[in-house]
Simulated scan of single mutants.
Amino acid sequence: NIKLRDQMVDAIKKASIVGIPFYKNDPILTEDRLKRPLTDRVFKHFKITPKMCCHTFVNRVFAQKSDFWKALQGKRILIITKDKWADKVTKALRKKPYNLNVTMSTTFHHHDQMVDTLAFIEANKDNFDIALISCGVNSLVLAQKVAETGNIGIDFGKSLMYIVQKKAGLKNSSRGANKGLIP
Rank of each mutant, 00 (worst) to 15 (best):
S16M: 04
T117F: 03
I28R: 14
V137I: 03
Q7F: 09
V18I: 03
T49H: 12
I182G: 01
K35P: 01
G74C: 04
H111W: 09
H110R: 12
C53L: 13
F120K: 01
M8V: 04
N124A: 03
S16V: 00
K47S: 15
Q113N: 08
V89I: 15
K75R: 10
T149L: 05
D112H: 07
L118G: 01
V9C: 06
A131I: 08
F46R: 07
V102I: 09
I28F: 06
K14G: 05
T106C: 15
D26F: 08
D129R: 09
W69V: 06
K70V: 13
V141Y: 12
T90W: 01
I130H: 01
P97Y: 07
K35T: 04
L181N: 04
A11L: 09
N1V: 02
S139W: 02
L142Q: 01
C53P: 00
S16T: 10
H109S: 08
G176I: 03
L4T: 05
K84Q: 05
V61Y: 15
H111R: 02
T49R: 12
N151A: 14
V58S: 09
I182E: 11
F108N: 03
I182D: 06
K158Q: 05
L181C: 00
K51S: 10
Q165L: 11
V61C: 12
V42P: 00
I48Q: 14
